[in-house]
Write a protein that binds this DNA or RNA. Structure first.
Lengths: 175, 175
DNA sequence: GTGAGTTGGTTGTAGGGACAACCATATCCG
DNA sequence: CGGATATGGTTGTCCCTACAACCAACTCAC
């Protein structure tokens, strides 16, 4: 910090007054924009969580089932699945443990790599997913997509796609 | 499920085949749109977390400090703060415990309601916040706001504002 | 091939957050 | 006023997730 500025406010005290010029950063519109994004995301998630958890599965579990269902042969390598679901590898190990215990997923050794495992969606797993999906989509519609005009929805989707390409490079497939 | 449709696929077996019509829901564009929102939100958060946690504070703690800093007299009732930060009241109690132990926040009894407490930002707390804020805003710019054209940023912000009003009614102030 | 280094996945452990139960105070109403 | 109910916060407990340490298997260089 520059302490040679002959200005009004105290030079560099540890107790910034209410007119500390650094406080201007608190109102930076970019900060607000990011906060808005987070609020909407968590707010929407909160609206969706009830229905999913009423079916006895957590949001993370739901995402894992969904991603598996959309993958080739409804299976994915553990590490890929962890990346896609934003989980640590240990976190995914435990999550798949739980799903496997309930028969919604099963593990499959990778033939070409002795270390690797696939998580494979079982018929029961797909069934469970398809059971909750219609209600889930309806809630998304009610709390998100239907609240925007078609044009706005297109705009926000395009913008989000752009940002995703930056913050999550190489995550083109899946949602 | 309607089992009277004289269509091609098997009526209602527990093992849905790969051409189960219900699988169409997996590709519903609304589901994709919501997934995109979540991916961007978590992806951006991941990019921001490093800098904040390098300063020894968690994202939740950062949000609490930020919201306090923007509030009247840099203080907020515990319950209001919990709501704004999307935390349970017990979660906030523990979080404020930690911040208080580090001197970034202090509790203040509410004079008009013997049950209530305020969480008040201390000078050290404001200082800690202002220390990390510039770098934080810069990261937001790099990973979010600067990746969009001004027009796109305006569009997405307007759209998000609309959605927020729906999914988080009465959260007009703060971010 | 054999050893060094890397990668995929699981296990030990710790921390944060949620839910439920609880206490204290406030409010409402007879 | 006094009991019934509601509200604000804290505490007990559990679950989920991350980080670190670990093991097994693959790759590469020599």
């Amino acid at each position: 910090m520059a302490d040679h500025a002959p200005t009004v406010s105290p030079p560099s005290g540890p107790a910034p007054g209410p007119s500390d010029p650094r406080r201007a950063a608190l109102d930076d519109p970019r900060l607000t924009a990011a906060g808005l994004l987070f609020e909407v995301s968590t707010g929407l998630a909160a609206q969706l969580t009830g229905q999913i958890s009423a079916a006895g599965i957590s949001m993370s579990e739901f995402e894992v089932l969904l991603r598996l269902s959309r993958s080739e042969a409804t299976r994915l390598r553990m590490s890929d699945l962890a990346t896609q679901a934003n989980l640590s590898s240990s976190g995914l190990t435990r999550l798949v443990d739980r799903l496997e215990a309930r028969g919604l997923v099963r593990r499959q050794a990778c033939p070409s790599d002795g270390r690797g495992s696939f998580a494979v969606l079982t018929d029961d797993g797909l069934e469970a997913l398809l059971d909750v999906l219609p209600g889930h989509v309806e809630l998304i519609d009610r709390w998100y997509t239907s609240t925007l005009s078609p044009t706005q929805l297109d705009q926000i989707t395009a913008a989000l796609r752009t940002v995703r390409a930056v913050v999550r490079p190489g995550a083109e497939a899946g949602a």
